[in-house]
């Protein structure tokens, strides 16, 4: 494969897909490399009510299918593979994949984030046996059972609401005395009869013989530990960036998020960043999509200046 793409985009979530759309609409040749599922994290949530225009069919998988189809319609190419590293040179950059290599003039890193673990004993052992990080994947199993949701942000409260469609009872355990989630979502959760909330409390341990049977809860103020029987534990305690493979290539902050400027430029020439993997304050589908659009536009300008590419 000796084709040289104008833009190689790493990650097929909302950031990568909109970068692809903008790049291909500008008549740049573009390819998106995705190791897992197209749509990224956004394809794992049914409740996606805050992306403008998605009120009619506010589910993540459907919105992401449309985003992919739109990029495809304008000529973006797609490949299923994992990016393992880069070799940067002035003109042509090499993107190493598990099964090969791609060459491109610019790179957009849009690898997003993954769920943070709770770090409680029992969590690893009981994963897939009642401990979950994906409500749409696993909610079914808990039909008419009881589950605990750990966390207090948007994802935790939204997914708790989603889980009430299946589970008999959903108990949110949060370490503070109020939620970080948006007020409207919190109000919806508070009104839901199937949702209980335990404030100021952390999950100390998850236990069970082969499958989850309960959790040990510790009150953050009094230190008191209590036993709480449950069939499942859904963990939504934040996310961490996926950027290991770019270490030493682009600058990152202490948490491993990639630093980008307003135009999505990283510390490496011709390499841009977009979406959740970037240092920023609001990690959502809309900001990921916006980042992708900006990154592609900046890449386009760079290519025009650098390679004097005549277009149109």
């Amino acid at each position: 494969m000796s084709k040289i793409y104008d833009v190689a985009i790493v990650g097929g979530g909302p950031a990568g897909l909109s970068a692809g759309l903008y790049a291909s609409r500008s008549k740049l040749s573009s390819i998106i490399i995705e190791k897992g599922k197209w749509g990224g994290q956004a394809a794992t949530t049914e409740e996606l009510e805050n992306y403008p225009g998605s009120i009619e069919h506010p589910t993540g998988p459907k919105l992401m299918d449309r985003m992919k189809a739109q990029a495809e319609a304008f000529g973006t190419e797609f490949v299923k593979d994992e990016v393992t590293g880069f070799e940067l040179s002035e003109d042509i950059k090499r993107i190493r994949l598990s099964n090969g290599e791609i060459q491109a003039r610019t790179i957009i890193i849009a690898t997003g984030a993954q769920p943070m673990l709770l770090g409680a004993p029992g969590e690893m052992e009981l994963r897939g046996k009642g401990v979950s990080y994906c409500a749409t994947c696993d909610a079914d199993f808990f039909t008419e059972l009881e589950v605990v949701v750990v966390g207090g942000g948007d994802a935790a409260v939204e997914e708790a609401i989603y889980l009430t469609r299946f589970a008999e009872k959903v108990t949110i355990v949060h370490r503070r005395d109020e939620f970080r989630a948006a007020k409207s979502i919190v109000a919806k959760a508070m009104e839901n009869e199937k949702i209980d909330i335990i404030w100021n409390t952390v999950v100390e341990e998850i236990y069970g013989d082969g499958i989850v049977e309960g959790v040990k809860l510790k009150n953050a103020q009094t230190g008191e530990v209590t036993d709480f029987r449950t069939d499942g534990v859904f963990v939504f305690v934040g996310t961490k960036p996926i950027a290991e493979f770019a270490k030493g290539v682009v600058d990152m902050n202490e948490k491993g998020y990639i630093l980008g400027d307003e135009e999505m430029r990283t510390s490496a020439e011709g390499v841009y960043v977009a979406g959740d993997v970037r240092v920023k304050s609001l990690r959502q589908v809309i900001t990921a999509a916006a980042d992708g659009a900006i990154a592609a536009t900046t890449a386009e300008r760079y290519i025009e200046e650098k390679f004097h590419k005549l277009k149109r």
């Binding site: 897992g36 599922k37 197209w38 794992t44 998988p61 994906c134 749409t136 994947c137 696993d138």
Partner: peptide, 9 residues
């Protein structure tokens, strides 16, 4: 599962 996007991928 039918609703498990990673599984289907």
């Amino acid at each position: 599962g039918s609703k498990c996007e990673p599984c289907k991928a």
